[in-house]
Amino acid sequence: MMPNRHARAALLGDYLPGVAICGALLAGLIWLPSDNRLPMEILLVFAMAQGWNLLSGYAGLLSFGHQVFIGIGAYSLFMSMNAFGLPLPLALGVAGLVTMATAAVMALFLHRMRDAYFSIGIWVMADCVRLLIGQWDWVGSSRGVMLESSKLDLTHFADMVFWLAIGLAVVVQFGVFILLRSRFGLGLMATRDNDVAAASVGIGASRSKVTALILSALICGLGGAVYYLSILYADPSGAFDLSWQIKILFIVIIGGVGTLEGPILGTALYFVLQQAFQDNGEMFLLLQGLTAIVVMVFAPQGIWGVIAQRTGLQIFPTRRRPPGPSLAARRPKPTTEDKAQAARAPAKG
């Protein structure tokens, strides 16, 4: 079936705001600061947060163990360059593959676990991997491992890592966007909202959740690989630190879990706060904890969730809308999903 004029206009309208906003944000990150370090960290943390969001927001599996993928990504990059002498692009590929394989093995244990059992199961495994890496001499045990930088082009190193971070952030944002608009994404969200109903129309819940876990792990693994590439050193207590998970969780929760716009907002807020509390790390952590509680009590859907609920605004539209005459006439109307949700809500409470 050929896409007609309306459909094409709608498609353009769906992508244009997101592309424009991401372009503007990226331009700001590229040209405003004098130093590339902070923008690079922002982009990588954002990508990891969006990766976690794919699993926890869209597949409904709250993970407390994503630090394992960050660490595995970093270590497999380092070891494939140090021990096997692979060039950087190939090593990044290996890092991605190893992280995906790790997630696949973990899925063997996890795929029947739901809710809290999944959250804790993945946490125990992450802790296991951290302890094992800390015992393993080949990867430097608890001393950690330095990247042998002789093969790297150090003159343009900072710029190259920065562009890797930009590439990862952009590919993740639009990759997840396209994925969620696909048949797979629809099935994933349907399973999250009602697994029995989803199964009754033939959606393989287990398979789509495992796929989401593996993709989410891949994103965090590549994020970890690029981050630790930039500092040339990784150790088990840093790369597998729970604070990675707390950071990502805070960003997604405050921005809006299960929205594509939320992690952008959350990342911005996180780094503004981090810069404001630069001299007082404990206060910053206390504030994060307090914010998590306050957000859960007053607006569990997060900042973007509240905005979207009030205005119906979607910068990255992942909800299906019924076909209608024009884009402008359609946009402000609540979607059928909104209406259905509004009808369901009082009955549940």
Binding site: E282, L286, I293, M296, G349
Partner: peptide, 23 residues
Amino acid sequence: RLIGPNPVPAMIATMGLSIIIRN
């Protein structure tokens, strides 16, 4: 205030509480 059919809000709030107590 947080209990209900969805266990996630209470999990995240107690996660926040754990960060507060720890620090």
